[in-house]
Design a protein around this nucleic acid. Sequence first.
DNA 1: GTGCGTCACTTGAACTCTCAACCACGCTCT
DNA 2: AGAGCGTGGTTGAGAGTTCAAGTGACGCAC
Lengths: 163, 163
Amino acid sequence: MTEPRWLNADERRAWLALLSINTLLPAALDNQLHTAGKVSLFDYNVMAMLSESEGRFLPMSELAARTSSSLSRLSHVVAKLEKRGWLERRPHPRDARVTTAHLSDVGMATLEALAPGHVEAVRTKFLDALTEREVNDLARIGEKIVARLDNDHWILRDTERRP
Amino acid sequence: MTEPRWLNADERRAWLALLSINTLLPAALDNQLHTAGKVSLFDYNVMAMLSESEGRFLPMSELAARTSSSLSRLSHVVAKLEKRGWLERRPHPRDARVTTAHLSDVGMATLEALAPGHVEAVRTKFLDALTEREVNDLARIGEKIVARLDNDHWILRDTERRP
DNA sequence: GTGCGTCACTTGAACTCTCAACCACGCTCT
DNA sequence: AGAGCGTGGTTGAGAGTTCAAGTGACGCAC
């Protein structure tokens, strides 16, 4: 067994920063969303992903991919949002294994009401700290990390590659 | 009320990447730690922070600061780790309000057994995706974001400023 | 057309986290 | 000395998350 390569100063800084962001940023945004409406960041994201899709619906597995979540977690959350009347689950007409989640009109209205406050928070808690160049760097670096973690992740789809 | 400023392409890329990293990276590392020993990333971090401190102990509030966690969350986790014999809580000799968490020898040994696999995972899941320059950029950008979220965050302490 | 493996989900139990309430101590002011 | 306030920490309940197991459906092999 060989001695592991410990982190050097920059690697440690990068790792600690990411670790901290990781707990602080969701907490800050969760907080804003929770006081604005009783919604978590994850709830918001689920609805946002649906709202951006053709017909405002997606199969559960696709929705799970777009929220980077497990099917199990998504299933529980969709059940909750369905109870609030913001979503509806329907069986897929062609493939009976598939369930599709549909954003209801009420859900869409809720999302639209929450959206301005949310993007504002994303700006003040995060983007406003950075220059345009840094935002671009972060996007590039972030996507490289995502690619490492999940090479087929949806955010990497059609970023300048396509038949 | 004015129209909110929605995100432009780069802002959106940066935000989505960070959001994805945020769920994928902890999951990946949690996974590694959980199969290596029954430990979460947060558990590991708590013990790592103690191991790096003078005397291997810290007051609960300082430990909470160094793990970016709430006192409440920390309290629950420390109770759990204490039950496993890896930590010990003692009253502070001078200030009876303060509890200090001490890393036990068994805890230290556990940590040392886990460390190589963990740093290896940090490398393969994250750092190896980046060039030296990108690691440096990420450290810089990450610290700016942390500063925006919590201006007194401990990782910003004594980074080239001091009497 | 009958198995048999895989896929798409769902469920319940165990665990974790958050939130609000609480307690005990120390500090300051009078 | 005692009142009142802020600090440091714990606790219990409720919400959320994970994990392992289970349920149908599809689809391919023979």
